[in-house]
Design a protein around this nucleic acid. Structure first.
Length: 878
RNA sequence: GGACGCCUAGCUCAGCUGGUUAGAGCAUCUCGUUUACACCGAGAGGGUCGGGGGUUCGAAUCCCUCGGCGUCCACCA
């Protein structure tokens, strides 16, 4: 333990943090089962860490999320909860495979899948993932995250794989999972399906062509994808459209660029009669909306584009094997030659692209595994969609204790809109990095089970599951499901979850779906949605643009606490925030301020003069009452997830009230060792969730509770025992500020001792009393006397009904003083006029609450007194 | 096309269910090395709360409308 006076003047985070984290970890308190009895007996509180993808390293967005989670879990731990923050990572199937394939191709490989084969490529990916995972886990430690490493999970580890298989099998047995031939989003480059949520729409110029399928065809159609028209099986029109009414129900034949089409004319409300020709060529195989129409009308699906993104043979020799772009040009040329092309128009179209592989998504029909969101679950009597709805509205099965609250609430509506528009979920991916689908086949036989079947000749489905299938089960697979574990009983549903709004659809919905299905419960009681952390220009941080920032670099320079506090202060739920170096600096400055406050207090405690007398001064009563208020408001704000407001309130107290006022007073009044210690210990506790390292370190140096770490110290529950002393103190504080202002305005150097005076009409003696010593010190006054006469020797101002004077001994600039008084008086007059008018308004008097009227009357009286004081001063100067 | 968010001091943002003369941090200006801290202290300036209407005794806050910025969804083919 260093001598307190030898503490460095500036806090050096880098020499503290790593060792401190080791101390915490060694204490076992990260593990709820090893917490002190107080917590063991407390109510469980559990947060599942959103598992970062093992595709790279953590960025500042993760740092924000970690700060939120850790602040919450430390707060709850100190409050005596049996607190668990469970860490983990996500194998991120498609993202990781795409990333590794990209790296391999950059290294010169043409087709990694072909060249390496399944086993070797998976091995490459695993190596990459493990390396990335190790980096991520060390970053999480650097952030000070107090998570239970003994429960570390990975979406692709054995236990989680078991849960995934179990879920699949149960859903299959319930008839929710089926194999079906339907249109999917297909990435040609990735050679895999993609979920609706992983498509990024990009605006790009395209052409809208209007033409007839063939000569003599009764109607024209418009499309940006003429090459797909080989697959048309119908023309849809609106039922009210007079132009086409006579054709509805008929089937027309057409020779489209050499291929015979049989087109049924159907009426569908989805068709907008005012768009284009009002007739829509329906291509069930290569358009999502057309597939929906086709399903409604029982139309056949005729694919014309294959998995390589090339035209199929039955489009004719001329087109077979062409890429879609080539085919498009050829079709248009042909239509033009035949005089069928009527119109070309430049349009901006929204094209879906794969967010992982980057290529344009083709819609093609394939046989895949699907999760039915509409089918009634036999044992539940309702569908997954209904359960997803209930979970955020009335609670599952109407049980309000099984309801997830989303903060801020507006995201509930977005969620529900999406639930209503949900399609069946395509589960299978033609990737190798991921959970293999637990289905085996042998000839015509099919076996679905958690383990491979007995016997020879069985072959497992080569496809893997969508990565969100495993992350959807995160909240319970991490607790040991499907085993009926103690953890599951204790911690599920989890208490709180945080995530960015960008994965609301991807993840939150699926977690709710999975928990509702597997456990008949919600995954968490509260979801706190945070915004995206952007760069200083409001742009997204981007790794490819090189604007990404590694939190470790920031921590190295400023310390983890500085990073945490600056990420948390200034944010509001669901809204984006910006990252500025200035914010981190001001965080660092505050950490240092706290360090020096502590250093000062500890020095004072060694000072014999500070030995407690047992008596309390006005300042003591004030600061203790403020401390109680602030600690209560911290509790309330953290309970309401108002991280920023909690931090700001405590910072105001620490810096303004404590450091700038009370500690300065303590230099004069003395006898404060006990109170100073109480305050220090309390603010260390209150700050700990936000700034765990520096607070724990000071706690240790302070040394009064050596047997316990601050991280498990009880959260302050203070009661404000003041009897209105605070108001008197606030008055004195304002008087001191006013005195300082007079000094500054009159350009009297701080070093020069002066005489101040306070309005004699007040009982100055009673007000000031014993406080005279610190008032003199804080204003550097040699004397404070009653203000008897306002002679020209005095610069005077008024504070409410109190006049405050500074003896400038004739050195007053009369003209300047008059000008200043004049402007002050003018401002006052305006206020008085407005307020008087309000108070004369009968409606106001009658309708406004008494309290409001009373306050306003008081304010008016004060303003009038102030006006009088200033006026008399002004008169004197004339 | 639909939905949502934002527009408050030079900058970044707080301001909950309407009620003191609208706040903070940073920046700016003036002064200051008083031994906890210059990663500091004292003081000051700075806003008709995007425009316009309305409701109300009272609106940054509620309603309508217009404008700008942003995001998500749907894709009219």
């Amino acid at each position: 333990m260093p001598n307190k006076k030898e503490w460095p003047k500036a806090y050096d985070a880098s020499s503290v943090e790593d060792a401190m984290y080791e101390t915490w970890e060694a204490s076992g308190f990260f593990n709820p089962d090893q917490l002190p009895d107080r917590n063991q007996n407390g109510e469980p509180f559990c947060i599942m860490m959103p598992p970062p993808n093992v595709t790279g390293v953590l960025h500042l967005g993760h740092a924000l999320e970690d700060s939120l989670m850790d602040t919450m879990i430390r707060f709850q731990r100190m409050r005596g909860r049996k607190a668990l923050l469970l860490p983990g990572t996500d194998h991120a199937a498609i993202a990781t495979q795409a990333k590794v394939e990209k790296i391999l191709m950059e290294q010169g490989m043409k087709n990694p899948r072909q060249e390496l084969g399944r086993e070797k490529l998976v091995e490459e990916i695993r190596t990459f993932a493990e390396k990335s995972k190790a980096t991520i886990l060390s970053q999480i430690r650097k952030m000070g995250t107090s998570c239970d490493w003994s429960r570390l999970a990975y979406t692709f580890d054995e236990a989680r794989s078991k849960a995934v298989n179990e879920l699949f099998v149960r859903m299959y047995n319930d008839g929710l999972i089926y194999r079906g031939y339907r249109v999917v989003n297909w990435s040609v480059k990735g050679q895999s399906t993609s979920s609706d949520d992983e498509i990024v729409y990009v605006e790009r110029p395209g052409k809208l062509y209007t033409f007839k399928y063939a000569k003599g065809f009764p109607m024209s159609i418009s499309t940006t994808r003429p090459e797909t028209k080989f697959g048309d099986t119908a023309v849809a029109v609106h039922s009210d459209d007079a132009r086409y009414k006579e054709y509805i129900g008929k089937t027309l034949e057409a020779d489209f660029c050499g291929k015979k089409l049989s087109l049924k004319i159907i009426a569908d409300e989805a068709v907008d009669p005012d768009y284009g020709t009002g007739a829509l060529g329906v291509t069930p195989a290569h358009s999502m909306t057309d597939a929906d129409i086709a399903e409604r009308h029982g139309l056949p699906i005729i694919p014309v584009i294959d998995e390589r993104g090339r035209m199929m043979a039955d489009c004719g020799a001329e087109f077979a094997d062409c890429s879609v772009e080539e085919a498009r040009e050829k079709v248009i040329a042909k239509l033009r030659d035949q005089g069928l092309l009527e119109h070309e128009e430049e349009v901006i179209q929204n094209v879906g692209t794969s967010d992982r592989y980057g290529d344009v998504i083709e819609v093609i029909p394939m046989t895949q595994w699907w999760l039915d969101v509409n089918k009634v679950i036999p044992s539940r009597g309702k569908s997954l969609r209904e359960l997803m709805r209930e979970a955020v509205t009335i609670g599952l099965d109407g049980d309000s204790s099984k309801k997830t609250a989303i903060t801020p609430d507006r995201f509930t509506k977005l969620y529900l809109d999406r639930v209503d528009n949900l399609r069946d979920w395509c589960l299978s991916r033609q990737l190798w990095w991921g959970h293999r689908i637990p289905v085996w086949s042998r000839g015509e036989e099919i076996y679905v089970g958690t383990e491979a079947p007995e016997g020879n000749g069985w072959e497992q489905d080569p496809d893997t599951l969508d990565t969100w299938f495993s992350s959807g089960s995160w909240c319970f697979s991490t607790l040991g499901w499907p085993e009926k574990t103690e953890d599951l009983k204790t911690f599920h549903p989890t208490s709180w979850m945080t995530m960015g709004y960008e994965i609301l659809y991807l993840w939150l919905m699926r977690m709710i779906l999975m928990s509702a299905y597997a456990l008949e419960d919600i995954p968490f009681k509260d979801a706190y949605i945070h915004g995206i952390l952007r760069d200083e220009n409001g742009r997204k941080f981007s790794k490819s643009a090189g604007t990404g920032i590694n939190p470790i670099e920031v921590i190295k320079e400023y310390g983890c606490d500085a990073l945490r506090i600056s990420l948390l202060i200034g944010i509001t739920p669901g809204n984006d925030s910006r990252y500025f170096t200035e914010k981190i600096e001001s965080g660092r400055n505050f950490v240092n301020k706290l360090w020096n406050i502590s250093r000062f207090i500890l020095m004072q405690m060694e000072d014999p003069e500070q030995k407690s007398t047992g008596e309390r001064t006005l300042a003591d009563e004030w600061i203790l009452s403020r401390l109680a208020d602030v600690s209560a408001s911290m509790t309330a704000k953290l309970e309401a997830y108002q991280f920023s407001q909690a931090g700001e309130a405590l910072r105001d107290f620490t810096w303004n009230d404590l450091a700038d006022w009370y500690l300065e007073i303590a230099k004069v009044e003395k006898g404060k060792a006990e109170i100073l210690q109480e305050i220090l210990l309390t603010i260390l506790k209150l700050w700990h969730p936000f700034m765990p390292f520096v607070t724990e370190y000071i706690w240790k140096l302070e040394g009064s509770s050596e047997e316990n770490l601050l991280m498990v110290a009880p959260w302050p529950e203070l009661v404000n025992a003041s009897h209105g002393e605070s108001a008197s103190f606030e008055t004195l504080r304002e008087i001191v500020t006013t005195m300082r202002r007079l000094r500054a305005e009159n350009h009297i150097e701080p070093a020069k001792a002066v005489t101040f005076a306070i309005d004699a009409e007040l009982d100055v003696e009673e007000l000031v009393g014993d406080n005279i010593a610190w008032i003199k010190r804080l204003t550097n006054a040699s004397d404070v006397e009653p203000l008897e006469t306002i002679s020209e020797d005095w610069a005077v101002t008024a504070l409410g009904n109190t006049k405050v004077g500074l003896n400038v001994a004739g050195a007053i600039d009369v003209e300047k003083e008059k000008a200043k008084l004049h402007s002050e008086l003018q401002e006052l007059a305006g206020y008085i006029a407005v307020t008087e008018k309000k108070l004369q308004n009968a409606d106001f008097i009658n309708k406004a609450p008494e309290q409001v009227v009373a306050t306003m009357s008081e304010k008016l009286a004060e303003a009038k007194q102030k006006e009088e004081a200033l006026q008399s001063r002004s008169n004197l100067l004339t």
